[in-house]
Design a protein around this nucleic acid. Structure first.
Length: 824
DNA sequence: GGATGAGAAA
DNA sequence: ACGGGTTCTCATCC
């Protein structure tokens, strides 16, 4: 099981429970027994005072949490000292529980899915809609029911009764009452109120007039209503779904979708119908009329804020098919374009009720986020504004639009600092620009100013927000308040930040509409399969001595410049080049990056590399069979459109950033060779043993482990000692390296040799490359390496190991295992 | 007029 | 807190 993450709701708990919660994530411990096998002798008294105090605390911390609905239960199981607070034996098992895939923790709202259950797939579809995936390793997936997740479920049109009945059908135990209450209460208030932009006017809309009356009584919202005669509310028939077809789907081609489930006969197994079928039905028969009142543009944010305070979050929807004010855009997907099932799924959530809902879609890089955005644009067919993080991706987006759709090239313009004059000539079109272009506060050039006026003075059908996770919330506020758009779609690969600003996105853009499971996509062959490994490099004693007495700044430099790490890097490059892989090496530290690249005679790109140079190197990396290894600084994390690579080596990284790790892994997911039989991409993290790096590394991996990736620990690279021409193999060389590192860092390192270095790196690669395939013959694949399979717990154990002794014995054990394996 | 670099901001 | 990387603009050069 994965490590606990810091953001877990249980973090709010008091001391009293801290000791026990650690067992929480072990599903086995929560196994309820059948009724009849428990003795009723030991009536353990529940810890009442404790729990009441806790409840009081929780109420103050978070009025909306599952704990609010917690009930006391008589504990029947006589082993509370083992199960602690996680004793669920009071939950009766249903007779046919084997056929049902879900367990639930009534107190925390955690749901455990048995991913090997025949119904797991359907259950997963459902869970992704109503709950937040926490961790999805191979056999057990853990989800959490939260207010946000239920909010999202409601926003795609599920009703509370759907959620409750479906959940109940999948559960091995009856649905606990507190969970039922939690769901009912959340869903009652959430999703009742919608913000709709109709003919350029904003309306607050709800099927329930009482809710609107309640809002109008609010001292802040009330006066903001735009009066039309005496009537307080306007009423009209609710829209029917009709035949909205998302382009690129099976339906669009006239093919009937195979929606029949191959359900087999699992006795009383729940016959679950498609969640989205349910959703569409609802719109047809239940909500016959809607009521609305109008508010002015400028008050939208105030009203949204106030509604949120009243616990009626406002969902944004765009009824684009009935918008006759904004000109239609001539755009369609190119014939023959077929979007993938998961892309279709995410879009069907966005357009679930025939309108465009605002929200976030989370897909790993390489899984076709761009195409999702483009398809959304082709569905809405109105003016689109696309926001990216860099001007490189602006160009990229425009090209993708031209590639996938039949948009007239004159109707799609880029707005960046190089190109701020031109605009589409028709009545509508697509603008691709950057966040900074829109939020630039300082003085602007004349053209940019003119363009901004144009952008802010018109209405847009869709705002596409790329890489939504990198942009802080206050920038969003500025963007969304200056650009009037009917709907917003945020795209991202990782909804992760080390700070907690990510939750703001839920209300600034919308709920999370869809999140893909990386492992699943990779099993289906949409993204590459990846072997992840952490390579432990010991620190030579000279380096370690220096490390111990160095200040933090220098420590970092020392463990990055660890010569053993350098050798490991060299070894891996040799090995993978011989296999024909394209390798990217990441180093955050520019000094180290240059040193490594120079010493190994390979090309590198960092922030200071001029644009033309970058393109040239990237182009060579892609096409030139002589250039197979590329060194990148942080620049490679975001703002570079990397050609596909199949192997990735990380020699230094930014502290414990899970996002960076995920993003970097994403760089090798689009490898085309993934369809080859048994093909793997490789991801290595080089870590200097006994340094802070070990700790950071374990933190960084958390996200990937939750996505189901297994990290292997390599303590010894096979046959490395016998590899010829390793750098720094003599003590003298190592001492010299140490000296250089120390000296270079004392003086503010100045690099006039910079450009020189770079060119040498490029030219020098021919003589630098040394194929060592012969000595590596016995290594036919990643699995055969001298890997010791360990999961992250090892790292954690190491991190927790208080003294040197512990870690030493630990290493000895590894060493023994290593030897034993080698002997076999 | 188009590259290129410096300097600012966030 | 810092270094890394953006972006924008303006000034300079050929």
């Amino acid at each position: 099981m994965p490590p606990k993450r810091k953001a877990a709701p249980s973090a709010a708990k008091g001391e009293a429970k801290a000791g026990r919660t650690s067992r929480m994530s072990t599903p086995g411990a929560a196994t309820p027994r059948s009724l009849d096998d428990t003795g009723d002798d030991a009536e353990d008294e529940p810890v009442v005072g404790d729990e009441e105090l806790q409840r009081e605390l929780d109420k103050n911390i978070d009025i909306f949490s599952v704990d609010k609905y917690k009930k006391k239960h008589t504990v029947r199981e006589p082993l509370p000292h083992i199960f602690g607070n996680n004793d669920y034996s009071y939950l009766d098992l249903k007779k046919d529980h084997q056929n049902r895939p879900l367990w639930i923790d009534p107190q925390k709202g955690r749901i455990i899915l048995e991913s090997f259950n025949p119904l797991a797939e359907q259950a997963q579809d459902f869970l992704v809609t109503i709950a937040e995936p926490l961790s999805r390793p191979t056999f057990m997936h853990e989800y959490a029911l939260t207010t946000h997740s239920l909010y999202a479920a409601v926003s795609v049109g599920l009703s509370p009764s759907d959620i409750i009945s479906t959940l109940d059908r999948f559960l091995k135990t009856p649905l606990p009452e507190e969970i039922r209450n939690f769901i009912t209460n959340c869903t009652q208030s959430y999703g009742k109120v919608k913000l709709v932009l109709k003919n350029t006017k904003y309306f607050v809309e709800s099927p329930d007039p009482d809710v609107l009356q309640l809002l109008l009584k609010d001292p802040i919202i009330g006066p903001l209503r735009v009066q039309h005669g005496d009537q307080e509310l306007t009423t009209e028939a609710a829209p029917k779904l009709g035949a909205l077809v998302i382009p690129g789907t099976g339906a669009a081609k006239g093919v009937t979708q195979t929606s029949e489930q191959q359900l087999g006969d699992h006795g009383e197994a729940p016959k679950e119908k498609d969640v989205f079928a349910t959703l569409n039905e609802d719109d047809d028969d239940e909500q016959d009329v809607t009521h609305a009142f109008e508010i002015a543009d400028k008050d939208v944010e105030t009203v949204q804020k106030q509604c949120l305070l009243l616990n009626y979050p406002v969902l944004e929807e765009y009824d684009f098919r009935r918008d006759e004010v904004n000109a239609n855009l001539e755009i369609d997907l190119r014939p023959g374009t077929q979007i993938r099932p998961y892309q279709e799924k995410s879009l069907s959530k966005m357009f679930g009720n025939g309108r465009a809902k605002s929200g976030l879609i989370v897909l790993p890089c390489g899984a076709g986020k761009t195409l999702v955005g483009i398809t959304a644009a082709c569905t809405i067919k109105k003016g689109v504004i696309v926001l990216c993080t860099s001007s490189m991706s602006v160009v990229q987006w425009r090209l993708e639009f031209l590639k996938w759709s039949n948009i007239n090239p004159e109707d799609i313009v880029a707005f960046t600092s190089d190109n701020k004059g031109s605009m589409f000539t028709g009545s509508t079109g697509i603008v691709v620009t950057t966040y900074s272009m829109l939020t630039q506060a300082g003085q602007r050039s004349y053209d940019a100013d003119k363009m901004m006026k144009f952008l802010t003075n018109r209405e847009w059908g869709l705002m596409l927000l790329d890489e939504v996770h990198v942009v802080p919330a206050n920038i969003f506020r500025r963007v969304t308040s200056s650009i009037k758009s009917h709907s917003k779609l945020g795209l991202t690969a990782t909804l992760l930040r080390e700070d907690d600003k990510i939750s703001d996105l839920n209300f600034l853009i919308g709920p999370k509409l869809f999140e893909a499971n990386w492992m699943e996509l990779s099993k289906q062959g949409h993204i590459a399969r990846v072997q992840c490994a952490e390579v432990w490099c010991p620190m030579p004693t000279e380096f370690y001595d220096e490390y111990l007495k160095a200040p933090a700044r220098k420590k970092q430099l020392l463990y990055i410049m660890n010569p053993r790490k350098f050798q490991a890097c060299q070894y891996l490059i040799n090995y993978h080049e011989a296999r024909g892989d394209k390798i990217i090496v990441f180093a955050d530290n520019v000094y180290a990056l240059k040193k490594y690249a120079f010493k190994l005679g390979r090309a590198f790109i960092y922030g200071g590399t001029p644009q033309a140079e970058r393109l040239k190197v990237l182009d060579n990396f892609q096409k030139n069979p002589e250039l197979n290894t590329l060194f990148l600084s942080k620049i490679g994390d975001t703002s570079l459109d990397l050609p596909e690579a199949t192997c990735l080596i990380q020699i230094s990284s930014h502290y414990g950033s899970r996002r960076q790790e995920a993003q970097r892994l994403g760089r090798i997911l689009r490898a085309k060779r993934r369809n080859d039989e048994g093909f793997n991409a490789f991801f290595y993290s080089l870590v200097s043993k006994d340094t802070q790096e070990v700790y950071f590394s374990s933190k960084r991996q958390a996200f990937l482990v939750d996505q189901g990736y297994a990290f292997k620990v390599i303590t010894q690279l096979a046959n490395m000692e016998n590899t010829p021409d390793l750098a720094f193999s003599t003590p003298a060389e190592r001492r010299e390296l140490l000296q250089t590192v120390l000296v270079d860092n004392e003086t503010a390192e100045d690099d006039e040799i910079d450009d020189d270095l770079f060119h040498k790196g490029k030219k020098g690669k021919k003589k630098g490359t040394r194929r060592t395939a012969g000595t590596l013959g016995e290594l036919s694949g990643g699995q055969d390496m001298a890997y010791i399979e360990r999961n992250k717990k090892v790292n954690q154990a190491l991190k927790k190991g208080k003294g040197k002794q512990e870690s030493h014995s630990f290493f000895k054990k590894i060493g023994r295992e290593n030897a034993r394996r080698a002997a076999q």
